[in-house]
Simulated scan of single mutants.
Amino acid sequence: MTQTHQHTRHGEGGHHLDHGHGGHHEHTDGGQAEILDLDAEVLAEHMASITAWLPLKSEPRHIVDLGCGTGAGTFALLERFPDAHVTAVDTAAGHLQLLREKACARGVEGRVRTVQADLDSDHWPDLGRPDLVWASASMHHTADPDRALASVRDLLAPGGLFAVVELAGFPRFLPAHAPENRPGLEERAHAATDSFHAEHVPHRGADWGPMLTAAGFTVEAERTITVNIEGERSAAIGRYAYGSLQRIRGVAAPALGPEDLAALDELLDIDSPNSLLRREDLAVRTERTVWAARRA
């Protein structure tokens, strides 16, 4: 459909900085897809706990996954609700292609429909009348959240539920005293991206409760999940940290001092003994907040 807005999430060198699923961004790349896949792998247990928590009146039969990315939410929802069909919506054709390939590999292609669409468009395509609309790390990318929320309200079947899942921010991976030559580097790198985020994703970290209420929803429940996964629990955490900090570097580099930049590059040097891929002190630390709302 027509792309009415083209908001970039890129830093220098085309790095997507955010972990969002690209609900209205046309550009995609392999690195972004890899980060989304790693996010899904590392945080699968937390995603399952969110789908189990949803205050549903009955099991949904038709679900719309807005800003589906490469399918983390889609497949968690299909697993949780075995009789449901999911319409997976994203603006990135590459993400949708990967999602279709995964659906075929898992034998659930008959339960998934993909739709390429821009959540910032005035006119959404026909997505049916879902019992559940799921939006994970995608709503904060909309240029006009009020309009997007109104579109969701109009989309939902009577009594249907809208689940908004948002990250508190980019995950942290290193302990505070690391790396040894530049303690606190990770926090400084994040701070160096603040102005970028303020300009390009101003709704990241927002409280969606008041916005949902203003858009004609009643928030039935809200939950914040604290994520703290030690590195030994998942072999993917090193790759997740590497890909994430590599993307942060693309935006943070101009604002970092030479010592910090050199230390960051050492962490990203796969041949270095201090490479993120070799460290044994990594963990994934972040928070996710979920709002569950119905049409008022």
Rank of each mutant, 00 (worst) to 15 (best):
M1V: 13
Q3F: 12
H5M: 10
R9F: 11
D18P: 02
D18H: 01
G23Q: 12
H24T: 14
T28S: 15
G30S: 14
D39F: 06
H46G: 11
S49Q: 13
A52M: 05
E59A: 15
P60A: 07
H62E: 11
V64A: 14
D65A: 12
G67D: 11
G69Y: 15
G69T: 12
A72V: 04
L78H: 13
P82C: 07
D83N: 15
H85C: 14
V89K: 09
V89R: 08
A93M: 02
G94F: 15
L99W: 07
V108D: 04
V112A: 07
V112I: 14
T114P: 04
V115P: 07
D120C: 13
D122E: 15
S136N: 13
A137F: 13
M139F: 14
H140Y: 15
T142E: 06
T142S: 11
T142L: 10
T142D: 08
D144R: 12
P145K: 02
A148W: 08
D154V: 03
L155H: 04
G159K: 00
G160A: 02
A163K: 11
R172T: 15
E180W: 03
P183L: 03
E187L: 12
A189Q: 06
T193I: 07
S195C: 06
F196G: 00
A206V: 08
P210L: 05
L212H: 02
F217Y: 06
V227R: 05
I229M: 00
E230I: 01
G231K: 05
G231N: 06
R233H: 13
A235R: 12
A236Q: 11
Y240E: 07
S244P: 03
L245A: 09
A255T: 01
L256A: 01
E259T: 08
A262R: 07
L268T: 01
I270F: 04
D271V: 01
S275T: 03
S275V: 09
R278A: 05
E280C: 06
T286E: 03
T286M: 04
R288K: 10
T289A: 07
